[in-house]
Nucleic acid binder design. Structure first.
Length: 160
DNA sequence: GCAGTGATCATA
DNA sequence: ATGATCACTGCC
């Protein structure tokens, strides 16, 4: 799913205005066994969305100032999510939430236009060769899991 | 390189 | 109740 989201558009409608940016970078957090995942230590008040059905926003606050945007994935009961790390022209997971005015209010909401934050396929074709993989960012504490190539991003030469 | 900033969670 | 930690950013 982290791969599939590349090239799709993240659309935000807030106070009557609508903006959309193509998703260019994602990371996968995959199951309880994933030491880098919030779900690794079980379900808590913060991470419960990861344990629910796919397609809901998992929004959390970190470092005292940043909101992170994820979308839940996997079957109901299987804790997993995709972190949206960058949009075309908006690099960085905390920057994009600031730009799109995303915060706690969207947590656990199903991604759709009613709630004002959703994903659209606008027909951008992403070839497999345009997708690069790398280890995830900021999780060096995760031992072997820190090395897994669960970060996906569009190569610079990919068509925009 | 590292300060900023506060919610969250484990420990007690 | 307390203290360490943190899926980051921006300025040095």
């Amino acid at each position: 799913m982290a791969r599939e989201l590349l090239g799709k558009y993240l659309v935000r409608r807030s106070r009557g205005r609508e903006i959309a940016f193509m998703i260019t970078e994602t990371e996968a957090y995959h199951g309880r066994g994933d030491k880098a995942s919030h779900a690794h230590r079980g379900e808590t008040a913060r991470n419960f969305v990861m344990f629910g059905p796919a397609g809901r926003w998992y929004v959390y606050f970190t470092y005292g100032m940043h909101w992170m945007l994820n979308v839940s994935s996997g079957k109901d009961g299987y804790p997993s999510a995709v972190l949206i790390r960058a949009l075309h022209g908006v690099n960085g997971p905390a920057r994009l939430t600031k730009k799109l005015k995303i915060d706690k209010k969207l947590n656990n909401k199903t991604a759709n236009s009613k709630i004002g934050l959703w994903i659209e396929d606008r027909g951008v074709r992403v070839a497999k060769k345009d997708i690069a993989r790398a280890p995830r960012v900021g999780i060096s504490y995760a031992g072997e899991w820190a090395k897994k190539p669960y970060r996906f991003f569009l190569r610079k030469n990919a068509k925009k």
